[in-house]
Every structure is written in structure tokens, then in C-alpha cells.
Design a protein around this nucleic acid. Structure first.
Lengths: 170, 170
DNA sequence: CATGCCATGTAAACAGTTACATGATTTA
DNA sequence: TAAATCATGTAACTGTTTACATGGCATG
């Protein structure tokens, strides 16, 4: 149930509406825990029902501002410190690698070359937003930089691996 | 719909029953595309209905052996060469990093230390099964080694990153 | 003849995606 | 006043997990 904790985490930085949160999801959490509008609004309803968040004000256009409760904050902390992160990661990129014997060596190399190019593009993209995020002083930016560095290293590894793997196909 | 293609991919190496496939999922694909028994049997039914696989023989204990059809093989090849892999990856491990400001610096460092230890354990585990997989000459083993190398590099990166990130928490 | 493994299937619950639906407020 | 943006919500579908259910066959 990480969506729930993602929402609690964002609200731990201050009150916000579903609409506000959605933008933060798209900007900060897009590559870590994406969420759709549909999911978000229903999760906020459930969190309010469970007493982990409160509606603290209602604005124009039916806007509802949510704030995390003490109980919600306690649950967030418990989740961060006591719940072991999931290990399972699905990768259809890697799944295809298992079946490369079913296509020609040219196609297999091409597949890996495209992965390397994609990783290079990701790398560039991360470098480009780095300076932007570098300036933020809020918690999300400070710790987001650690996550960004993870993405950077991951993209680098992926690029090098894809180049290496391409060279192994004869 | 990657489960479908994972099944087609395994069957491209030769006929097998649901039970056989399940073991292969647990051994070879556990860290790439895990599947449950429940999912597998229903997917086989759907694949047979779509003409991508056939039941080629029925054995004792209701055992049904499935084989990939020409149509299924064509679909597998199309998926490998023409369908772009999904980029979205969810990581509740990284999600927690964004919210480390909500716990004490000691707890935050501890969290990252545990990630480094976990990655070190993964690394060891991969090294240990490496020699085992090294011996296989079937397609799945040959290409599985490329995937294994990816896992190795990923675990290394993760370990180094977690150690680095832990050093940044004051 | 009991235990373990082989073998398949269904049902309910939960999580996530896509599409639909509606309407208020601001700004050019 | 038209277009963009703010803002929330529901419905249908797809994919995944967990639990339940059943029974055959081989081996000690």
C-alpha cells in the first residue's frame, strides 16, 4: 500500500488539495511512484475515513485542503522505519532479453542498442533537471536529490550494460 | 501484457505444462517477471483461446502440455522487436528516501545502511548462482546470463549509492 | 498406507489504468 | 466571452495476490 504512504509523505510537508498533490506526483514522484488523478482522489477519501488525514478547509470550486493528522504522521514514520521495502521489481525490458534467441542477431543487437540510447537520453534528462532541483531547500528537494542521484547511477549502469550486452551477441 | 509474452517466451523453448512453467518462473524469471500459479493457469487458458498456444498432449493427473503455435511465435517476435519496453518502475525503497526528513537522522542513516546491506547480500547471491547458470547452454541460460549481469551491476550500484547517501545525512 | 510431489482450477480482494462526466474560476 | 486552468468525482476494465479446493500418482 505505498500509494497511501506516498500521499501521507507529501502531506507531511504541509496541507494540500488533491489537485496540488497530483502536480507534485507528476513532478517529483513520476519516476518513483506514479499515481493517476483517479487513484489519488479515492485514496484521499480512504485516508480521511481512516483518520490519517483531515479536511482542513474548503475553497472555491469545491477545493478541499487536506492535512496529515498525528496518527497519519505516526503511520508514515512506522512505514519508513519498520516496513521492509518490497524487493520485487518487474522489468519487461529485461524479460525481452531472455527471449532474444527468438529474433535474429541483428534484431537482438538493435534491441540492446536502443536500450543504450534510451539510457543515454535518461542520463541527459537527469543531468538537465539536476541543477533545477539543486536549488530547492525543502525536504522533498533535499532528499529528492538522493533519489535523483540513484536514477543517475542507474541510467549510467543501464547504458554501460546495454553496450556490453550488445557486444556479446554474435 | 507482459505475462502473456513471458509465457510465450518460455514455450518458445519447447512444450511444457503449467506446472513446469511455474517452476521456470520461480527459478529463472523470479526477479524479472514473477507470476503466481493462479495467474499462469488462467493465462494459459486465454492463450489457447487466442490460438497462440495449443494443448499438444494430456498426461496423467490431468496434465496438459502446451506448445507455442506459429501465430504465437510471430506475436512473441513482434513484442520483442516492435513494442517499446515500459519505462515506469515503482520503487517503494526510493519512495521512502523522499520522506526521510520525517524520521531522525539516526533512523535515516540506519535505513540507508540496511539498503546497502541488502544490496550486498543480493550481490553475493548473484555471484553464487552465477557459476551455476554459467554451465547452461540452452537459450534461456545464455541470454539469462545477460540479465544476471544486469542484476549484478544494479546491485553494485545500489550498494554504492546507499553507502554514499548514508554519508550525506547529518 | 501415508507422505510428498504433481497438477489444475476458482473466487475474492486489492491495485492500477483509462475513459467519462461535470462544473467553477481566472485570464487574455 | 472564449479558452485555459482549477477541481473533484465515478465507472469499467485489466492485472496481481492470496486463499480455497480438489484430487492423482509415486515412493518409502
Amino acid at each position: 500500500m505505498s500509494l497511501r504512504h506516498a500521499v501521507l509523505g507529501l502531506l507531511s510537508e504541509g496541507p494540500a488539495s488533491g489537485y496540488d498533490l497530483l502536480k507534485t506526483f507528476d513532478v517529483s514522484l513520476a519516476n518513483v511512484w506514479p499515481a493517476t488523478q483517479s487513484q489519488l482522489y479515492s485514496e484521499l477519501g480512504k485516508l480521511a475515513g481512516a483518520g490519517l488525514v483531515d479536511v482542513v478547509s474548503e475553497g472555491p470550486r469545491g477545493r478541499k485542503e487536506y492535512a496529515i493528522t498525528e496518527e497519519g504522521l505516526a503511520e508514515l514514520r512506522r512505514w519508513v522505519t519498520e516496513v521492509e521495502p518490497t524487493q520485487v521489481v518487474r522489468s519487461d525490458m529485461l524479460l525481452r532479453v531472455f527471449f532474444l534467441a527468438q529474433v535474429s542477431p541483428e534484431q537482438a543487437r538493435d534491441y540492446l542498442r536502443r536500450r543504450a540510447e534510451e539510457a543515454a537520453k535518461d542520463l541527459e534528462h537527469i543531468e538537465s533537471i539536476r541543477e533545477f532541483v539543486e536549488s530547492g531547500t525543502d525536504n522533498l528537494s533535499v532528499y529528492g536529490r538522493l533519489a535523483l542521484e540513484y536514477g543517475l547511477r542507474l541510467a549510467k549502469s543501464q547504458k554501460e550494460w546495454a553496450e556490453w550486452a550488445g557486444g556479446r551477441i554474435h
